Structure formats: C-alpha cells, structure tokens
Computed example of a mutant assay.
Amino acid sequence: MLEARFLGLFFAALLAALPLHANRELKADNGDQSLAGLEKRVAADPDNLELRYDLGIAYTEVAMNEEDEEALDRSLIIFKQILKDDPNNAKTRAMLGSNTVMKAQYVSIFSKLDYVEEGYTILDELIASDPNNPDTRLIRGINASRSPGFLGRGDVAEEDFNWLLTDLQKSANTYDDNYRRTIYYYVGDWYLDDRDKRCVELLLKASQLPGAPRLTDDIEKSLKKAQKRFPSTYRKLTQ
C-alpha cells in the first residue's frame, strides 16, 4: 500500500512536469488553436500533418489539465497516425514519448515504470539518432530535469540544457526570440530548483524577450523566487 501511494505521488509530480507547454511555446499561434477549432481545421485539411500534430497537442492539454485519460488516448492515436505517414517526424515522436510517460498514471501499479521507461527510451533514441535537434533536446531536457532523482535523469537534463545554451550562442542557429525565451526559462527554472545562482541571469533574459503569452506568468513567478533567493546576484545584474 505504501509503495502504491509513493508511486502515485511520484507520477503526479512527474506528469505535472511534462513539457507540453514548452512545445506549444515554440511556435506563435497560427489560426484557431482551440480543440474545437483544430478539429474543424483538420477535418477540412486531413493531409496537413502540422495541423494534426497541433490537434494532438490540444488533446494532450486537455489530458493534463483535466486528468482526462480519453483525451490522452486520443492524442496517442493522433501521434501514432502521424508517424505512420511521416516516420521521421521527430517532434511527433518526442510527444509520443512524453505521452507514453503520462499514460503511466492510468495503468496498473505493476506497469507504471514500464511506461516511463518506454517513454524515456523513445526520447533517448531520438537524441542518439539526431543529437543536433533542439526541439527534442528541449523536450527531453525538461522531462529529465523534473524527474525524481532515483530515476537517474539528472545527467540527461544537464547534457541537453548545456547543449541548448551552447547552441544559442552560435550565429548559425535560427532561433527566434520566442524560442530563445523558452529555452532560457526552462534552463533557468532548473537552476532555480537546484539553488544555482545562474538561474537569475537566464530568467532575466527570458523576461526581457518577447514571446507567446503562455509562459509569461511562469517566468515572472520564477524570477521573483530567484530575486528572493539570490538578492545580491539580482541587484548586480539589474543595476
């Protein structure tokens, strides 16, 4: 009974940290992004894989916000169908990995870790096959950074986040301000949780860049925590 309760709490914490909102943040809204709106747009243009992907993301949002297993299953079906048409679609496979982890919330206590391991395997294989893909680096990095320590994903988070920060400095990258903002926030928030003063600089950078509104409140909250935790660093960087 205690083991079941522990694993239940573990998965509640893990699922709350899934990187769905990061994935949504990486693109500006283009048309009606509501679930109902996307259903209509996909019905009118069923061969549009990007629209179908957005619909899968919308169902995932419902699954997360409302703890709706049916919506989660629908998203898994959508992502699997996209991969049948486009097996090399990395961001779709990454979301399939993340949602496989989420599915662990609803399965038998004896199968939960199997789903987590399957999801992580998908993400790890994506990075192994294409280590220079920032989308999958970010998704995997967030997953790893929010996972409990006993899963041993801390090194994975460090690898992915260091890669992203290094890539941000390269003139050849094509990140827009919205993308940069997203990376700065998630890496900065990880440093904040780890009580590392480097969080201040990254969260300040995130707060100073324009972007879609989804992360604005989260950035402001984390920056306030960083200011309180590292007041001297904050004053030095804002003078």
Rank of each mutant, 00 (worst) to 15 (best):
G211N: 02
D47H: 12
N173E: 08
P134N: 07
I219V: 12
L223Y: 10
P87F: 02
R198S: 09
F150S: 02
A172V: 00
M102E: 12
P213Q: 09
G37F: 02
L203Y: 09
D114M: 04
Y184N: 09
Q33N: 09
T166M: 12
D54I: 01
L49G: 13
R140S: 13
C199L: 04
L168I: 15
Y59I: 00
A17Q: 14
K224C: 08
D29M: 13
K228W: 01
V62S: 01
S111D: 15
K205T: 08
D167N: 15
Y234P: 00
N99T: 15
I139L: 15
I142V: 07
A157F: 03
L83W: 03
L209C: 05
P46W: 01
G141F: 06
Y53V: 02
G56T: 01
L49Q: 14
V200F: 02
D193H: 07
L204M: 06
P210G: 05
E67Q: 10
D218H: 13
G37T: 05
D29K: 10
E25L: 08
L237A: 12
S129A: 15
L20Y: 03
L55Y: 00
L14M: 13
A43W: 01
S111V: 08
G152Q: 05
A90F: 09
I142A: 05
S147V: 05
K228Y: 06
I57V: 11
T136E: 11
